Amino acid sequence: MQTLAVAEYLNFRHAASAIGVSQSSVSARIKALEETLGILLFERHARGVRLTEAGRHFVERVSVGIDQLDQAVRTASMVARGEHGRLRVGVHALIQGSFLATLIERYREQHSGIEVEIIEGAARENVMRLRADRLDATFVAGSPAFPDCHARRLWSERLLVALPAHHRLADEAGVTWAELANEAFIVRHRGAGQQVHDHIIMRLAGAAVDMSIRRFDVEHITLMTMVAQGYGLSIVGEAKTLLHTSGVIFRPIFDEPETLSCSVVWSPHNRGLGLRNLLELAGRMSSYDQFIIDATAF
């Protein structure tokens, strides 16, 4: 700092006055630095000093280093305040207009200095990424309980049946499970496919004479196209209706008492303010009063 001040004022007295120390202190510090480096940084003369060629190169490099250090300090301070940095979020799908998409949109609006990275994948894959510190949070269907992670339920969606537009029940306001008893169903291997499969069996066990549930390794949009083409019916969360698949009709199941709950999962070791801000915003948006951000979780 004293070397840069002398290089700026080219005068020991003026430099000392500018940084609030004695002239002798500045002179002694510069002399000690020159002896340590083994080079002459300043040429002294009656009215002040001037930089040597070696001194000019030295000051240029030191100035760059000081600027980088200042920038690093400012950036670190912003990160510590949750105003700068990166947030890695795992999702199964991001559907415009859904709770999750709205949450991410509002977070980005409120924390413009945070780069939000979206990683799409199956719940199991994203939880593994979370455990490997490759994600800060992931959103999953259901209300999971992981011994090494925190999880909170955020929102729920009605369960609907997806029918081809030409189906005999497509013109009805809704259906009952009894009316679906002998229908063929199709579900995905990934995502919430296993949960959907088990739920259908639970509802129709004993009621269906010849239950048919086939599983396909496809994405949701492909599954809905298969529904439209008559492969079978499927059960979806209400947010999936926002995708507007041609040839598919969605109807509520009148006697379905459960909803599809969705949760956020995060590591108890992640104490970043970026994550905390996301969880607090999610809590404010959630319809569940019991969603409380526990300070001991950070």
Results as ranks from 00 to 15, higher is better:
123 A>T: 02
111 H>M: 05
105 E>Q: 14
124 R>T: 15
81 R>C: 14
94 L>D: 15
104 I>R: 07
104 I>F: 09
98 S>W: 02
81 R>D: 15
135 L>R: 04
118 I>C: 07
87 L>M: 11
148 D>I: 14
112 S>Q: 05
124 R>Y: 06
101 A>K: 00
135 L>Q: 03
93 A>N: 13
102 T>R: 11
138 T>P: 00
153 R>H: 11
109 E>K: 13
93 A>P: 04
129 R>P: 06
106 R>L: 09
157 E>M: 01
125 E>S: 10
128 M>P: 02
83 E>I: 12
86 R>P: 01
79 V>C: 12
133 D>K: 08
150 H>D: 05
141 A>I: 03
150 H>V: 12
144 P>W: 08
136 D>R: 00
154 L>Q: 14
125 E>F: 08
115 E>L: 13
91 V>N: 00
107 Y>E: 07
101 A>I: 00
121 G>P: 07
157 E>H: 04
122 A>T: 15
85 G>H: 01
149 C>R: 09
129 R>K: 13
84 H>G: 01
119 I>D: 05
142 G>W: 05
128 M>C: 09
93 A>Q: 14
80 A>R: 11
93 A>G: 07
155 W>I: 08
124 R>E: 14
84 H>S: 11
107 Y>M: 01
105 E>V: 11
85 G>W: 01
153 R>C: 05
123 A>C: 08
113 G>H: 00
134 R>V: 06
83 E>V: 12
84 H>R: 14
93 A>R: 15
112 S>R: 10
